[in-house]
Amino acid sequence: MTKSPIDPGGNLHEPLNDVMARISSELVDVAELIERLEPLLSNGRSTEFLASPDHMRVMQGIDLAVQKARGLAGFIDGIGERLDSDHLIDITTALNLITLEDMKRRLKASIHAAPSAEIYQKASGDLEFF
C-alpha cells in the first residue's frame, strides 16, 4: 500500500476500501447465481429423486456455498468499512489474473456494470458459448 495516488511507474492506485467493496459485491453476485440453481434441482421431478441422499447432499452443498459467499462478502465489507481511505492499492496485476471480462470490468474503479446475476436473468433463453 502507498499514500501516493500514482507511483513512479505510472500505475494508478485507488482506495483499498473501494476495491474491497467491489469484491464484496462480486461475492454477493456469485451467491445469487448459485441460488438460482436450487429451483432447477428441486422442481418436483420425482419423489425418488427428492428423497435421494445424494440429491440432498447437493442441495445442502448449494446452500452452504451461498451462505459462505454471503458471509465472505459481509466480512470483506466489514473490514473495508474500517479502512482509512488513504490506504491506496494498485490492482492492475490482480485484475490480469481474472479471465472473466465482465467481472474484470466490474472490479475496475471507473466502470459501473450490472451484476452477472441480473444480466443472466434478463437474458433468459439466450445462449453464449465460451
Score class of each variant (00 low, 15 high):
G74E: 13
L72C: 11
E81I: 10
L83N: 01
R22M: 02
E48Y: 15
S110Y: 12
A94D: 14
R70E: 06
V66Q: 00
D63L: 14
S52Y: 03
F130E: 05
Q121S: 10
L72E: 13
A113N: 08
N11Q: 11
L64M: 09
Q121Y: 14
I111V: 13
K68T: 07
A31D: 06
E101D: 09
K122C: 02
M20E: 04
E38L: 05
I62P: 12
F130V: 07
S52L: 08
D54T: 12
T47A: 15
L127A: 11
R45M: 14
F49R: 13
L33A: 09
P15Q: 02
A117L: 02
I111G: 11
L16F: 04
A69I: 02
A31P: 02
N96C: 14
F49S: 09
E128N: 10
K122W: 01
K68H: 07
P53F: 05
L50A: 13
D77G: 05
A117F: 07
D86R: 15
E32S: 13
G71D: 10
S24P: 00
E26L: 13
Q60H: 14
M103V: 06
P115E: 05
L72G: 05
D29P: 01
R70M: 04
P115Y: 06
K104V: 08
E35S: 12
L27E: 11
A117N: 04
A21S: 09
S52I: 07
L127K: 15
G61A: 13
G61W: 05
I34M: 04
D126N: 10
P53I: 06
H13Q: 01
G78D: 14
G61D: 11
V19P: 01
A21R: 10
E14Y: 11
R105A: 09
D18Y: 06
P53S: 08
H87N: 15
P39E: 00
L95H: 13
L12I: 02
A123Q: 10
G125D: 12
P115S: 12
M20Y: 02
E101K: 10
R45V: 14
L107S: 03
F130Y: 07
G78H: 05
A73F: 01
V58W: 03
I34P: 00
G80T: 02
L37R: 08
A94C: 04
E128T: 10
S52V: 07
P39T: 03
H13E: 01
T99G: 11
L127C: 14
A73M: 04
K3Y: 10
A65P: 14
K104S: 05
P115K: 07
D84Q: 10
T92R: 15
L50R: 11
K68W: 05
I23D: 00
V58C: 07
L33E: 06
H87W: 12
P8I: 03
G125W: 05
G61C: 08
D102T: 09
N17Y: 01
T92G: 06
E101M: 07
I23N: 01
E101L: 09
E26V: 15
R82M: 15
E14P: 00
E118F: 09
D126Q: 15
L41A: 14
R105P: 14
A114L: 15
M56S: 13
E38Y: 11
A31H: 05
L41C: 08
V58S: 06
I34K: 04
